[in-house]
Design a protein around this nucleic acid. Sequence first.
DNA 1: GCAGTGATCATA
DNA 2: ATGATCACTGCC
Length: 174
Amino acid sequence: MKKVLNQAFFDRPAEIVAKELLGKFIISNAGKDEVSLMINEVEAYTGPDDLACHASKGKTGRTQVMFGPAGFFYVYFVYGIHWMLNVVTGKKGFPAAVLIRGAGDIHGPARLTNFLKIGKEFNGKSAEPANGLWFENRGVIIKPGQIKKTPRIGVDYAGRVWAQKPLRFLLRNI
DNA sequence: GCAGTGATCATA
DNA sequence: ATGATCACTGCC
């Protein structure tokens, strides 16, 4: 069973999309060989009230894609070195996204983009095979007990409440 | 523990 | 134009 995740999958709250992305596959055919990895670590950035979400500071050049429709990639550069891969979730006009932090044997959001050769050219593109980067449901069933929740990484600046919310989701036993 | 690295944004 | 900040990684 292989089913490409469509816009309807992503057009839901970031927290739901994040949890459901665990066990799904990210596929890239940008290189000469197709690469597919099972997603095992994600974080949800839930909207304009989420002080850890870039869009909480308003719509800017960098964050505008988050204000667009669901199912588009939000890719940005941070610390002068690293690219971060996110997928926009929820309705157009409501800025929220899910950060893909780990898949397969690749643990760490910048390692993943490095491995998949993802850079700014994917920012603002939609997740579909025609664009060379997309997601599939391959029938892996994840039970609630397999999902571990923790606070998100590197968001201490967001204040106690938002920094501590359990919006990072990982698969156990990876 | 912390340096490296440069886009981005606010301030001017 | 300048300065602060940063959803990280790898090496000490």
